[in-house]
Structure formats: C-alpha cells, structure tokens
C-alpha cells in the first residue's frame, strides 16, 4: 500500500477529525468481552471434560470434539441471525474464541449463497477466515522448518 503523504491542509483537517471522533467506552466493552469470553471458554472446558469422560479420551484429544462443538454453536448462532446481535455486546469475547472463526466462515457462506454453491459458497467461504489460515500456516511452516534445521530443535 503506497502511503501518500498528506499536504498541510489535509493534515490539519485530519487533526480536526480526531477531535470529533467519539471514543468507544473501552473499559465497559472490555469488561463485557471478559465475561462473555470467560463463559465461552468455560463452556469449552466443560465440553472437553464431557467428551473426555464419554469417549474416554485424554484432555488434549478431548479438546478436538470440544472445539468442533463450539464451532457448531458459533455456526448455529450465525445461521439463526443471533451471532451479530450477541457480538454487539460481547465483542472480542465471542470473536476471539473459535466461535468467531466459525462466524466468519458461516456468515460468508450465507452471504454468497445467492451466487451459487460453487462460485459463491465454495469460493468465498474463506474470504474472511482465509488470512487466519494463511498466516497461521506460514508462521507454522517457518517455525517447523527452524525446528527441523536448527540443532537440538
């Protein structure tokens, strides 16, 4: 992205804009995010224990079905049109856990359904979640490579 320099008139105006831009109530929002994020993770832990007990799995394996369940909950809330309403208050509390990952994919899938299953849903499913996967994989690739090459791992 070429960052064009502002001329003095533009720079002066940008200062003015800053003055009028209202600030969000960051502490209140962060508190809501804390509570909702805590509840989501608590639920995730409960599901982990549940699957661990029912399927007789160790915790690190039981986290898998728990994650899948949370993704299902996020997907269902999105499909019912409730996710964006809850997220209005919960903010990062719902967006940062895997529920948010599910929301970004399901919302794209629903939105582009009218453009067909192949070029709409299929192609645009990852329009928001794609960067998370791409950058995650690139990071993990570099990290993994360093581990494999560097002596001692």
């Amino acid at each position: 992205m070429p960052a064009k320099k502002l001329n003095p008139k533009q720079a002066a105006y940008q200062k003015k804009v800053k003055k009028y831009e209202p600030k969000p109530n960051a502490l209140r929002n962060a508190f809501f995010a804390f509570v909702s994020g805590g509840v989501v993770c608590l639920l995730g832990q409960a599901l982990t224990d549940f699957f661990g007990a029912v399927m007789d799995l160790p915790p690190e394996k039981a986290a898998n079905p728990a994650v899948a369940s949370m993704i299902f909950i996020g997907a269902l809330l999105t499909a019912l049109g409730l996710f964006d309403r809850i997220a209005k208050f919960a903010g990062a509390g719902l967006a940062v856990p895997v529920t948010g990952f599910a929301n970004s994919m399901v919302s794209a899938a629903l939105e582009f359904r009218e453009e067909g299953l192949i070029l709409g849903v299929g192609a645009k499913l990852f329009s928001l979640a794609g960067s998370v996967i791409t950058f995650g994989v690139v990071t993990a690739f570099i990290v993994g490579l360093l581990h494999a090459i560097l002596p001692g791992g």
Partner: peptide
C-alpha cells in the same frame, strides 16, 4: 454492508462514529 464491509451476519462490532 456486504459490498463495502462484511457479510451481514458477521459479528464485528461497529465503531461509535
């Protein structure tokens, strides 16, 4: 919203401005 920003069901918060 879909054209300029996000899918309608996307759960991002709106800015106060």
């Amino acid at each position: 919203e879909r054209q300029y920003r996000y899918p309608t069901e996307y759960g991002g918060q709106r800015r106060p401005y």
